[in-house]
């Protein structure tokens, strides 16, 4: 039995790790959507976290805990830089600015010698463990539930439902939006660092626009009534292509079809259950 489990784990380690890492990315997306904003910078924040962590490990040999911390702080600084001016405006400016950030990061990583150009960085030691990924995912979920059941959780839901009314309630809208963007950047950076130290290779095209849309689809499929929805969405969208491998070339067609049907018939996501807001 243990040999079976060992074999299973060995064969599917990449997939199992991806489930947890995508779960963290889904939570990162959720943080922004939960206050009624749209960011398409999750992939860029992830990329920043991945590159920062890989460079610190490869060149400076920092301890992994410090590396993970740095992989959260640096994207957070980028979030402050972008969020400061754009979040004062209403509308799609945040989405546009974060798309631009993604392109800047991609092009920079593609050309800079520091980041290994188009070849990316390889030989990153495998320091990510199963316990670490799922421990952090569980910790993040617990914290999200605690936040949800407090004044901050009520403010978030109010902003998502009606920003004008939320403002009239006395909710500090700019601070909430900026805070959400910073937290989401930290989560994405963390996921990027864990991913880099699980795959031993990272390249500039791993963090492009399509990855940003994939992360968005985790949250949209799962639903944003609670933090569990996006994680469920991430699990399904990570497993689905694997379960459909028998379909070979039709895999992506069926994958896309399932997403379209889910969004059409469950516009509020698979998990529409909402979390209580009283602590």
């Amino acid at each position: 039995m243990t040999t079976f489990l060992d074999n299973f784990f060995f064969s599917y380690q990449t997939l199992i790790f991806a489930l947890g890492i995508n779960g963290l990315l889904a939570l990162s997306m959720y943080t922004v959507l939960a206050v009624g904003q749209l960011s398409l910078g999750q992939a860029a924040f992830m990329g920043i976290g991945a590159y920062v962590s890989a460079l610190l490990t490869l060149h400076l040999d920092w301890p992994f805990a410090a590396v993970l911390l740095a992989a959260m702080i640096v994207p957070a600084l980028f979030a402050l830089l972008i969020g400061g001016p754009t979040l004062k405006l209403t509308g799609v400016y945040l989405a546009l600015a974060t798309i631009a950030l993604g392109e800047i990061i991609r092009i920079f990583c593609n050309t800079s010698d520091l980041t290994g150009g188009a070849l990316g960085l390889s030989g990153i030691p495998n320091k990510t463990t199963f316990t670490l990924i799922f421990g952090l995912l569980a910790l993040a979920l617990v914290n999200f539930v605690l936040i949800a059941r407090s004044r901050v959780g009520r403010a978030m839901e109010a902003m998502r439902e009606d920003e004008v009314a939320a403002g009239v309630m006395g909710i500090n809208l700019p601070a909430m939006k900026l805070g959400a963007l910073v937290v989401s950047a930290m989560l994405a950076g963390l996921a990027g660092a864990l991913n880099a130290h699980a795959n031993s290779f990272i390249g500039p095209n791993d963090y492009g626009f399509d990855q940003a849309v994939t992360i968005l689809s985790f949250a949209l499929l799962g639903g944003i009534g609670s933090p569990f929805g996006p994680v469920l969405g991430a699990v399904i969208l990570t497993l689905l292509p694997e379960l459909l491998t028998a379909l070979h070339d039709f895999k992506l067609v069926v994958n896309g079809f399932i997403i379209v049907v889910a969004v059409l018939y469950m516009p509020r996501g698979l998990l529409s259950w909402r979390i209580g807001r009283v602590g």
């Binding site: 914290n143 605690l146 936040i147 407090s150 004044r151 901050v152 009520r154 403010a155 839901e157 109010a158 439902e161 009606d162 004008v164 009314a165 939320a166 309630m169 006395g170 909710i171 009534g225 909402r274 209580g276 807001r277 009283v278 602590g279």
Partner: peptide, 28 residues
């Protein structure tokens, strides 16, 4: 402009935003 998805009590508690000061560490 009700927060429709919230419960009635949560709506009233949302009205108290300006008077609640617990910090994030205190909440967590």
């Amino acid at each position: 402009r009700m927060f429709q998805e919230m419960t009635v009590r949560e709506n009233v508690m949302t009205g108290m935003q300006a008077r609640l000061h617990a910090s994030v560490p205190e909440i967590l």
